[in-house]
Computed example of a mutant assay.
Amino acid sequence: MYRLDIAALILLLINILKKNKILPLSRKELLLGFLSGVFLALHFYFWIASLKYTSIASSVVLVSTNPFFVVLVSLFLMKEKITFKMVLALIVSFIGTIIITVNDGNLFSSKIDKVALFGDMLALIGAFSVSFYFIIGAQLRKSMDTNKYITVVYSSAAIFITIMVMFANVDAFHYSTRDFSFIFLLAIIPQLVGHSAFNWALKYLKATAIAITTLGEIIGSSILAYIFFAQTISLWQFVGIAFIISAIVISFKYGKV
């Protein structure tokens, strides 16, 4: 919530100081912008929650399956053609996802790890949510400039997730100054720099291509998780990651971008 709230407030302040015109918006732009924001909020709500229950590597790998949800949604809702090699990439990524979830949840043992399995499911819901965020963004960026788009979407996401937190009956004010410094960095670097770069590129590349670029998180986050949290990768996690990275390579080489 704070990540989105801070990012939205900074954007609004910049626009006020620069006297940028965000309004008026057409009914379609307003509706789709709000919807995109809702899916962005849901992405963070489920994905960040997953980190409490499963490992960083598994969470990031599973949330990074979003390019394949983008392909599936584009196929069924937007009637885009899909090549055999993209079908192969989907199958390979699905196998990798199954390997990771089976390993994390100990599904083939007598003691199923329901906690890790729950975290994996949350990460997958996060992946599904961000897919719609990219698809809607690709449509809106055809007519909206980057500043107007991210201001509308981040503000909508901030409002929606703030309401969710208000009804969640949690203490949102117990964080230390150190905690808030990290939250502020989340708003500045991953949100205002990272996500805004993706949204800028949506005007020039297909949503599938943008989604694929997010998959670099897999390697980087796994390395950082080992350095800072001593989280190692098991053999089967490594195999699952290898399948998903193979699918990424296939998508990037043969995908329609």
Rank of each mutant, 00 (worst) to 15 (best):
Y2G: 09
I6H: 04
A7V: 05
L12R: 01
L13Q: 06
I14P: 09
N15A: 08
L17Q: 08
K19R: 15
N20H: 09
I22W: 03
L23I: 04
L23T: 02
L23F: 14
L25R: 02
S26Y: 00
S26F: 00
R27Q: 08
R27V: 06
K28G: 00
L30D: 01
L31V: 14
L31G: 02
L31E: 04
L32E: 06
L32V: 09
G33A: 01
F34E: 07
F34I: 15
L35K: 01
S36T: 06
V38S: 03
F39L: 02
L40A: 06
A41Y: 01
L42C: 09
H43F: 06
H43W: 02
I48W: 10
A49L: 12
L51C: 12
K52F: 07
K52L: 11
I56G: 03
A57K: 06
A57P: 00
S58N: 14
S59V: 13
S59Q: 04
V60I: 15
S64M: 07
L72R: 00
L72M: 09
V73S: 05
L75R: 03
L75I: 01
M78Q: 14
E80V: 01
E80D: 11
K81A: 15
F84G: 13
K85Y: 07
M86R: 14
L88H: 00
A89H: 03
A89C: 04
L90H: 08
V92I: 15
G96P: 00
I98E: 00
I100C: 05
N103P: 03
N106D: 03
L107K: 13
F108S: 08
S110L: 15
D113Y: 05
V115H: 09
V115W: 04
D120N: 15
M121F: 12
S131K: 02
F132S: 08
Y133K: 04
F134A: 04
I135A: 02
G137A: 07
G137D: 05
Q139C: 00
Q139R: 13
R141E: 03
S143M: 06
T146A: 10
N147K: 10
K148I: 13
K148N: 05
V153I: 08
A157Q: 03
A158L: 09
I159P: 00
I161Y: 08
A168E: 15
V170N: 08
D171A: 10
D171I: 12
A172N: 10
F173G: 11
H174Y: 10
S181V: 04
I183D: 04
I183G: 11
F184P: 04
A197L: 15
F198Q: 08
F198L: 10
N199S: 10
W200Q: 12
W200L: 15
W200H: 12
L202E: 01
K203D: 11
L205W: 08
T213Y: 14
G216E: 09
G216R: 01
I218H: 05
I219G: 09
G220P: 10
G220K: 07
A225V: 14
I227V: 14
A230K: 15
Q231F: 05
T232P: 03
Q237G: 14
F238C: 12
V239F: 09
I241D: 02
A242F: 06
I244T: 10
I248Q: 01
I250Y: 01
I250K: 07
I250V: 13
S251A: 15
Y254I: 08
G255S: 05
G255L: 03
G255R: 05
K256H: 11
